[in-house]
Design a protein around this nucleic acid. Structure first.
Length: 110
DNA sequence: ACATTGACGCTGG
DNA sequence: CCCAGCGCCAATG
């Protein structure tokens, strides 16, 4: 397995700089599957089994809400990691989401 | 093969 | 701003 849709998602997620976050739809769009945003979420489920590390905590929904925080070992781990990186989380949602939002398209530019 | 579910996104009211 | 409906695709039973 190499250049699969999931692998591409992992690649992008691993490229997310510290203190920044992105959304599933943005990743899906950069892969040319804007309508398959759900698949990005599914890929995240596989992220736990994926190789090195996939900072899935840096991936949130289009509203900056930590929808998948319950998928972490401790659900609060997501906020913990984000807070550690400088990302403020309030009520399961990222603050200044629009400001810390990281656009994968700017890194891919294929 | 069919039905159900899901870490989503967008539009409309 | 909140809620409801629809679309889209893959994994699972």
């Amino acid at each position: 397995m190499n250049t699969n849709f999931y692998e591409q998602v992992y690649e992008i997620v691993r490229l997310i700089p510290k203190g920044r976050v992105t959304s599933y739809g943005a990743i899906a769009k950069s892969l040319g599957a804007a309508k398959s945003s759900r698949m990005v979420g599914h890929a995240m489920s596989y992220a736990g089994t994926a190789h090195p590390v996939v900072p899935a905590h840096r991936v949130v929904n289009s509203s900056g809400l930590l929808t998948g925080k319950f998928h972490f070992s401790p659900p609060e781990l997501m906020e913990e990691l984000l807070a550690k990186e400088g990302v403020k989380v309030k009520d399961d949602k990222v603050l200044n989401f629009r400001q810390i939002f990281w656009n994968p398209m700017e890194e891919i530019t294929e």
